[in-house]
Amino acid sequence: MPRAVALSSPRAMLPDSPFRFIVIDDPVQAMDPARVDGLARVFAQISGTRQLIVFTHDDRLPAALHRLQIPHTALQVTRRAGSIVEVRRTVDPVNQYFLDARAVEKDDSLPDGVAARVVPGLCRLGIEAACMEAVRRRRIGRGDAHQAVERELAGAKSTTTLAALALFDDGSLGGKVLGEINKRWGKAAGDAFQDVKAGTHKGFHGNLVSLIDEAQRLAAGLREQ
């Protein structure tokens, strides 16, 4: 059990403790990746009898909670200039990017043209998050060291390399990614993959709703690899 939790939770967990809640600040920071799933399980156990509030800047904890299907409420806090703080409910990282893309596409208050410039990049982020999740689940599942997996993911500098890792378990096979996507999920998915990559730089001037739909379908497929 991680040290910070080992120290704090037993006292707060005593049956006669007046505190029915626990607040933990950034428990994942500097933690060995292998321990994050264990931490998520400890939190699941604690949350049976206590309200547990955890602050973190690290995606691994929400990802672990999602992967282990541990019920929780995730809130994202962002701070604008002038300390204007915004809080919103979020879902897992992959689907959040697509929810964001849909929200931007629908937002009438934005200047004309902004959505066409921003939506493809958000879709690409969703596809990248899906690939990372697939690679992590597969490699950790077969016993690879967490640190080696994270190093490989950090070294994957392009969306295509990440997709090659997700599809073939080999980042050097980027040249085969588009063909494989076309084969497995159809040409519409392959086109969406190309369009979100190019559109991240140049914008996309076709139908944004179809682009989001196809990219999200592709991300769901990649995530299950």
């Binding site: 604008r80 919103r88 937002d107 200047p111 990049g121």
Partner: peptide
């Protein structure tokens, strides 16, 4: 604009949107 003006919406999404633009 998307980073500085909350009235444009993009709650929570503005940092990525601004970086992309």
């Amino acid at each position: 604009a998307v980073a500085a003006h909350p009235e444009l919406g993009l709650q929570g999404t503005w940092p990525r949107a601004a970086a992309l633009l």
